[in-house]
Simulated scan of single mutants.
Amino acid sequence: MDFKAQQNKYTYSSRHAAPAWMDFMRKIVPYQQINHAGDIGCGGGIYTKALAELGIPLVTGVDSSAVMLEAAAENCQKEQGVQFHKGDALATGLENASCDLILERALIHHLPNLQPCFSEAYRLLRPGGTLLIQDRTPEDCLLPGSPEHIRGYFFTCFPKLAEIETSRRHTSENVLENLKNCGFHTLEQHTLWEVRHVHETKEKLLAGLRARLGRSILHTLKDDELEELVLYIDDCITTERDIVERDRWTIWKARK
């Protein structure tokens, strides 16, 4: 998916962070002690906004796409203490030791080499600061499909998508090794089932799939393949209303 294309501007700004994610953050991060958080690879600002809603006084969202940053600014226009900056995850342009918390959610699977990204996060953090990485491992992605785990149906219908997905996902061992190599310590690993969306009807779910809304991997399918996938999922899901879709994520926590 082209994150810099105007037609994709609102692809990653229409959701809200799930209550389970907010509760998890309250448990794992001493947010009351955080004065400045950086959301690296912020996209449409969904989690930039969530960090502000936790009560962090200053949150800076960083993304390399001007289009995404426009959507993020619109998404967060009512939040106090939120600002955005155009920059790359490997070279954000932010000051040394300027953040107490760095969040990198759904970022690292876009990066073949993790060390430059983690080194940049280390540079941005103050001593004792926390880095949170949230992404999916190959094991997270390839869980069986169900009405709760829609993503699993993608790979049953099109095994080639499973190959694409696993090739761009980092193993937990690789993440932890790179964190250590960059100087981080007190490493933790957690699993979180996060509600992606509650689809009021199956038709709305299918419409979202046809629009490839917030699902970058579907952009690798041709239009006729996408329709084949939608019809396949239509057959697999018999529930017509209130479909609660969840994704399993791995979250790594590290300290500087």
Rank of each mutant, 00 (worst) to 15 (best):
Q32H: 13
I164M: 05
R210N: 01
L114K: 02
I217K: 10
I150Y: 04
L54E: 00
C141L: 15
G128N: 08
N113H: 13
E240N: 11
N35D: 10
H16T: 10
D39T: 07
F155Y: 15
P116T: 10
Q6G: 00
E53C: 03
T250V: 11
L125N: 04
T239I: 15
W252Y: 08
T186G: 03
D2A: 03
E203L: 09
H110Q: 04
E200C: 05
N174H: 09
L161Y: 08
V195I: 15
T60L: 08
Q32D: 11
D235R: 15
N174W: 00
G55Q: 10
T201P: 05
F155H: 15
R215M: 15
F184M: 08
A106Y: 10
L103D: 00
P30M: 08
R136P: 07
L231T: 14
P159T: 04
I243R: 13
S146I: 14
I150W: 04
K256E: 03
G61L: 09
A207R: 08
W21M: 12
D247W: 13
E245Y: 14
P147K: 08
I133F: 01
E70Y: 03
E74R: 11
R105V: 04
L179D: 06
P116E: 02
H36I: 12
R126E: 12
E163H: 08
L90N: 13
